[in-house]
Nucleic acid binder design. Sequence first.
RNA 1: GCCCGGAUGAUGGAAUGGCAGACAUGGUGGCCUCAAAAGCCACUGCUCGAAAGGGCGUGCGGGUUCGAAUCCCGCUCCGGGCACCA
Length: 983
Amino acid sequence: DDVLPFRYGAALANEIERRWQDRWAAEGTYHAPNPAGELSGGFERLAGRPKLYVLDMFPYPSGVGLHVGHPLGYIGTDVYARFKRMSGHNVLHAMGYDAFGLPAEQYAIQTGAHPRVTTEANITNMRRQFRALGLGHDDRRSVATTDVAYYRWTQWIFLQIYHAWFDPDAGRARPVGELVAELEAGSRLAVDADHPDGRPWPELSPAEQRGYVDDQRLVYRDEAPVNWCPALGTVLANEEVTAEGRSERGNFPVYQRPLQQWKMRITAFAERLADDLDLIDWPERIKAMQRNWIGRSLGARVEFPLAHDPSRTITTFTTRPDTLFGATYLVLAPEHPLVADIVAGSWGEADPTPWRGAGLAGVIEGVPATGWESPMEAVAGYRRYAAARTELDRQRESRVKTGVFTGAYAVNPTNGEHLPVFIADYVLMGYGTGAIMAVPAHDQRDLDFARAFALPVVGVVRPPDGWFADRGLDPDAPAAEWPEAFTGPGAAMASANQGVNLDGMATSEAIATVTGWLASVGAGEATRTYRLRDWLFSRQRYWGEPFPIVYDADGQPHALPESMLPVTLPEVDDYTPAVVGDDDESVPVPPLGRAAEWAEVTLDLGEGPRPYRRELNTMPQWAGSCWYYLRYLDPGNDDALVDPAIERYWMQGPGAEGAASGGSGGVDLYVGGVEHAVLHLLYARFWHKVLYDLGHVSTPEPFHRLYNQGYILADAFLDERGVYVEASEVEGDEESGFTHQGRPVRREQGKMGKSLRNAVSPDAIGAEYGTDTLRLYEMAMGPLDADRPWSGRDIIGVHRFLQKLWRNLVDEATGASRVVDVATGDDLRTTLHRTIAGVAADMDGLRFNTAVAKLIECNNALTRSLAAGDGGVPREVAEALVAMLAPLAPHVAEELWSRLGHPESVVWAPFPEADPALLVADEVEMPVQVAGKVRARVTVPADAGEAAVEAAVRADPAVLAALAGREVRRVVVVPGRLVNLVV
RNA sequence: GCCCGGAUGAUGGAAUGGCAGACAUGGUGGCCUCAAAAGCCACUGCUCGAAAGGGCGUGCGGGUUCGAAUCCCGCUCCGGGCACCA
């Protein structure tokens, strides 16, 4: 480099990069103006442009900093944002920090350092790394969820949700004040008038009125079994617990414990959260995951009167009401509230011993070989057994069916048959009604249970003949002999009574018919149910948003008025969460309980100064990430979470991507990892819908288009013990074998990160090649949505490209420009304009890898043209190449742009436009296939008709040779592409 | 078990009904150099052949089509999601 002072190497690249980063910061190059308010400076200049909101899933500011896998999506959105800005959009692109959460708190527990101190240090470091990557964020809009000025509005939104209820008639959230007004006016009754306990509003006591309203709120307190994670010292939402019953973060065991916790009524929005997926442009797999998680299923509620007390019924949910005539028993979830009421005093003489729990003698301690002595004991014993089992136990023993008989019978409403009522843990309290009608002939789980408990199997849907044949059965074999349940659709049979006859009907028709009959006799109705549960919203941790809630002397919660926001997080001397043993039934006290002076306050909430105790739980980390995309729009607003005019401008229109293509509005492009499919992305949609219903935002969905970037993978190495060793210290190669400190290690590939000890720092790559090379490499290595392995070997390729392009434009010895003001040669000009068209289309479609390839090809064409002695580099080619490079490698592009004589930044330069006349050639070379194989090429005028092409082909000597005298049976001419002669 | 992806040279990948392997890495040879690095040039799917040229080739087996990596049917393997959800 000392011989060639202007060669584009690491030293020069780093100097250029630092210089331009300083200038961008000084000039506010990436500031996107708002239509109003304090950030509106410069808006008039851009007022005619369409808006574009490009968003990244913001990071948690981790202490170890970024590795090269982290910024893949950030670079992708940056390239896209820059391209769209050059293509005439007003582009909003900002970055914030999701800074509440466990790691800073764990670090604080270990070291005593305040989480705020470490968090701010980490944010500073991350900002430095983002700046060093050349990401063009509007840094005036950067927010951290831990900023008091930010979480004040998180608390404000909480209050909005708290003060709202879901009106099922309107299908939307409304202010609780409107509910109270309707109740007081008498236009709405406190409870269903048909209900035996139904009473009009004025007859309720103040406490009852309050209790009723609290039960309607979208935020409510619930005493129910929750996911308690002792290792984390907190409860967790269902979305944060894995299928194995462990915490999503840290993989610690999770136990079910009844605790009183705050919840959000996300289930009220299940229907809209599922339906509105059709409005948005998201990857099908993410939509599928959300649909699956919401778990809508259509069916019917069916009421079974108790045999000994027909005035009371067991309510079941089924998706197959057409099989009702085949129900032979009922099952309640063990914790179903009705169980205690219906359990019989003693066994019936004929009750088989398995019904009494004999089969559990070896499984549960203290069960006699002939089962429990009475239904009471059986139910109590089985409930204890079921409650003690973890998710993991259930998985391990999976399909083995257990349960006991309650001694009670219910009546099948179709035929009056008395059906024994069991409790069994294969029925879950949290789904449907927590009770099922069992139809063993047509449900495999019910059949397994029926076989274990000697219950009858009655077929009421006739399988097709092939079903019998496949199983070697006689087509007349009764259901009791079937080896498995028939769960498919078929013709109903043995399903008639005096009121309804399903026999012969197809399943769908039978479902509709029997559901109508059930409704007509008051024994049921069509309904739908969801797998989704309400969102458990409180955490027993320190580093989160405090609730704007206090409790009075009676323990009643009160929401604080807006004027008392923010409720700031107090100082504590110990951040350790409550340590409670796995079997300890005591209620854990969160760390905020140690801030006694903060917790005990005297406030005037309208009834004069009184003592209150603050809520000691904090909000989950998802709270702050539910709405940050709104705060970017208007980050300094102290009067509202976002100014409505600014919100409409960025979220609604006149952007091309949002409003035009589906009607959902929202962020035009949201890029992030797939791991938030049912966490952040579901919670944020829920909050957004509440805010929409209450009139605080103007679009029904927050994110119009979602895109999942892939992960960067890297080689990881394990020693003999199976422990990961530092990948950067491993020596050797595939053939000679890999070693670490002299000992052999084994290679595997995994997601780059701290845990696999295979992280590669962007700082190191930047120092070795420059940031532009790193950016370009990450974009060139494959499609943005694909996982791809990091290769230290391949990165040199894009570095060479930048070097070659630089060398074509700048004399490496003198620094003089090699650009001349001459007309571009025809061939080069055609190549250039095809490149422009291709690169623009690729960037628009986020296909940055092929865009880079096209730029390399174009530069190679320029190199060849120079080698052929074409004088200097025509200005047209140089300017277009630099402008096209600018979104990908902005620093070197700025430097070259400036050396081309432009005092203004290339960031705001228009993207080159292709001359359409140059995209169509005068002549085309068409391959000629004979019998499907390419045998010749003919060159014809581009506008030649089929007949002219055919004539040229038939006259071509190579074609004649390939035909070897064979007769041409058919000629296929694809104009401009290819000719196929069929022989 | 159900649902969703994926499989192309030594490697990352390109081509989404029309010339398979763009572009890049790696490799081989050459130029330059005292030498090395860098750079430049050429070649680089497999195979038969001295060459000209031929044959084969996009996980496997079928099909549709003048024509299939691409569409359809049936498999195999890999990855992801869900899973006693009535």
